[in-house]
């Protein structure tokens, strides 16, 4: 082992990050809740809650179900709307988070994506825009855009036309050919791909014989989906040149390293934030220890090395 200090930093589309750890959208709000637990400036960045043009309450409750090594949510994109995020959440965030944040934008029409991205483009605090074309929760919603290469490309093109910020398209795993959709986004000008959103799932209460979730189905996430996410990151990183943010079931520093070896430049941590609010802090502290054990000098060196083996 060389005696140089370990290097955890990664470069994600012009965004130089201290480390690859990024809490995933929908598990980290707009940062407020987690600053009560630790200084969130230790993060690489974080993705704020999926934001739409209008304020949304989301789906009826119950909208959470526990599962083996995971959970189902059908929150349905509850958020205060893009104007409240820009006028209220971002100024508040500025007081305690001093790095560029990743904005998650969701929509129900091309116009809505364009409207929100054009607005968020003006915000200097936002380093990257992550476009959610995959949320399986909302009827007539994001699902349809993420399930065909044509629709995913159409959103990508429309959004790219109104922003100079790097655009990542967050894809749904609930598709037959993830590679075709990722390639369509890349060809349409996407700067990166985020893989994966939740898997469509369901639970039934065997006492009442009714679905646990009021909306019947919801998005399954948590450590149980890690192998699915890893596989898709691996497949897409073989087919595309643009960087990937890996997301899905990440629960440890070793998972982060595995996801990077598969092809991820940055790694999102989602559901585990809800179980253990300190998980990202613990992973960031554990990473150098694992790197030392594995003989990794710099994290950016391992991105996608599985492809070369």
């Amino acid at each position: 082992m060389k005696n140089e200090p370990l290097n955890l930093s990664v470069n994600l589309c012009r965004l130089q990050m201290d480390n690859p750890i990024v809490p995933a959208s929908g598990t980290f709000g707009y940062g407020n809740e987690f600053k009560e637990f630790y200084d969130i400036n230790i993060l690489g960045s974080f993705v704020f809650k999926g934001t739409t043009k209008e304020p949304r309450f989301g789906n009826p409750t119950p909208r959470i179900a526990d599962c083996t090594d995971g959970m189902i949510n059908s929150v349905g994109l509850q958020n205060p709307g893009i104007d409240a995020v820009i006028n209220h959440e971002l100024p508040q965030l500025k007081t305690f988070f001093h790095k560029p944040v990743i904005a998650n934008i969701s929509g129900f029409s091309i116009d809505e994506y364009v409207y929100c991205c054009a607005k968020i483009d003006k915000e200097p605090q936002v380093g990257i825009i992550e476009v959610n074309v995959s949320c399986p929760n909302v009827k007539h919603g994001g699902m349809s855009f993420g399930t065909t290469p044509e629709a995913a490309a159409e959103v990508t093109r429309a959004v790219k036309a109104v922003t100079t910020k790097p655009v990542f398209i967050k894809l749904s795993p609930n598709v037959a050919d993830i590679v075709a959709i990722a390639k369509a986004c890349e060809e349409a000008g996407a700067d990166g791909i985020c893989l994966i959103n939740t898997l469509l799932g369901m639970r039934i209460d065997i006492n009442t014989q009714k679905p646990v979730i009021a909306n019947v189905m919801g998005g399954f996430s948590g450590p149980a989906i890690f192998p699915v996410a890893l596989r898709m990151v691996y497949q897409v990183s073989q087919a595309c040149q643009i960087p990937i943010m890996g997301c899905g079931g990440v629960a440890s520093a070793r998972d982060v390293i595995e996801m990077m070896i598969a092809g991820a430049t940055a790694v999102q941590v989602g559901s585990m934030n809800l179980k253990n609010p300190y998980i990202c802090k613990e992973i960031i502290e554990q990473l150098p220890i694992e790197m030392q054990q594995l003989g990794i000098q710099s994290l950016s060196e391992i991105i996608g090395i599985a492809q070369k083996k």
Partner: peptide, 13 residues
Amino acid sequence: RMGCGFGACMGCS
């Protein structure tokens, strides 16, 4: 029914 219990997931609104 709650997810996190500290306001992050919006499950219990």
